[in-house]
Write a protein that binds this DNA or RNA. Structure first.
Lengths: 230, 230
DNA sequence: CGCCCTTCGATTGTCTAACAAGTACACATG
DNA sequence: CATGTGTACTTGTTAGACAATCGAAGGGCG
């Protein structure tokens, strides 16, 4: 069933485009987005632009107070830690549940294959399948509210991932290998170990990103010892 | 610092009023809310009413598809289970963390006192402090994203609580006693037992509500044996 | 007599134009 | 230098309008 035609509303279309521009870095941190600007660049009425902006604000990609211009969020080290810890919070429990039922989500398997297929020259292309790997795990528990909660985090998570990739903070092969190991641990029913590996996986990305932003990196930033040894 | 003055926008004010009308049951399940209706009852322009409605849709209190009138959500048994399981998912892990640090949130203690102070004749008054008890626990972990995720669930949770209370499915004293026990278990550092009690606490409410809605109640609906014995 | 199709009313999506209200920054004043 | 004022920009809200769409009611046809 290849993507049935979708007649999305104008505000949704604009929101989607703005979103991708934020992810691609075309709209950098702190950049202002006035309603009039958006309205004129997309040639729509201001209320329509307003609605799009408010959508992105709700997603956490834009910041704005009453009567103030919306700006692209500026994630500080504390926010990054907050985001990654919230992720770990949800995802580690998910891994335990999946492992107890030994259910390996097909979507996650496919996503990890897609990561492997990405040429090393285009680091930003890893973001989409990486994100998909993790959302597939969440969705596999079959609870629509949990999925929705995770969705409310996805915007910011993806922003972090984009930063990690464009700064070359992680090797694609390592990401892919750890994902693979996670899937194996699920299949073997070893939930606690899967959760532990996830903590390593996320902790490293987190602390490296924090360090790259000028924060004080924690010890999680280093590579696993067996790989360092080579 | 008693509630600093807040100049809320009109759409926010209308959203708040609609919300309370949904919680109070004045707007029953499936009731239609057209933009024009809302606009005329509050004497505002239609776009303003539209924005308010969309806010409630985002909160999960209203349902609506493109070009269709917004309606108050009609929670079926599956949705109720989904909601309560998502709650348990987040809250049980929170209890473990709080117990490991033996941090008893002051807000939760106060909220439970407020529950005790409610006269038995007004069951709906229990909802607010009950909700506050649980949000206090979540907020106590100090992760703003986790709090935000829980917020995205709160609307529906509160709707369920209102149903439970107006149908007299649970005794106030029992709720209050179990909350008290949860706090004690946290203080004693017994995280697993706290999580277990929470499962009982939520499971009973969940299955009784499901049963009251015509679904097949699970075994969790029964009272704890020590209380049944009297 | 029942079913399909058309038509119509109601409702939402979007637009234009406009005014009110608030913020931020430069400027003038003490 | 601190303070107040003012002005430009931006957002909040309104009014009215038109197109697109959905749901139901009614008429035609088998």
């Amino acid at each position: 069933m290849p993507g049935r035609i979708a007649a999305v509303s104008i505000v949704e279309a604009i929101a989607a485009d703005l979103r991708s521009r934020v992810f691609s870095g075309e709209l950098g941190s702190g950049e202002a987005l006035t309603e009039t600007d958006v309205a004129s660049t997309y040639e729509v009425a201001r209320p329509t632009a307003k609605a799009s902006i408010e959508k992105l604000v709700a997603e956490g990609l834009l910041d704005r107070g009453t009567h103030k211009t919306a700006r692209v969020v500026d994630l500080g080290p504390e926010s990054v830690r907050d985001i990654y810890l919230a992720r770990a919070y949800l995802e580690s429990e998910v891994l335990r549940r999946l492992a107890s039922g030994r259910t390996v989500p097909a979507g996650a398997v496919q996503a990890n294959k897609d990561i492997a297929a990405v040429k090393s020259g285009a680091p930003l292309d890893v973001v989409e399948p990486d994100m998909r790997f993790h959302t597939s795990l969440i969705d596999a528990v079959g609870n629509t509210r949990i999925s929705k909660m995770y969705r409310s985090l996805v915007g910011e998570v993806r922003l972090c991932m984009s930063r990690v990739q464009s700064l070359h903070l992680l090797d694609t092969a390592l990401i892919q290998a750890e994902h693979q190991r996670l899937l194996e641990l699920i299949e073997e029913g070893r939930g606690d170990e899967a959760a532990g590996l996830l903590d390593v996986h996320l902790g490293r990305a987190r602390e490296r990103l924090v360090a790259a932003m000028g924060g004080e990196a924690g010890p999680e930033a280093q590579l696993p010892s067996d790989l360092v040894a080579e």
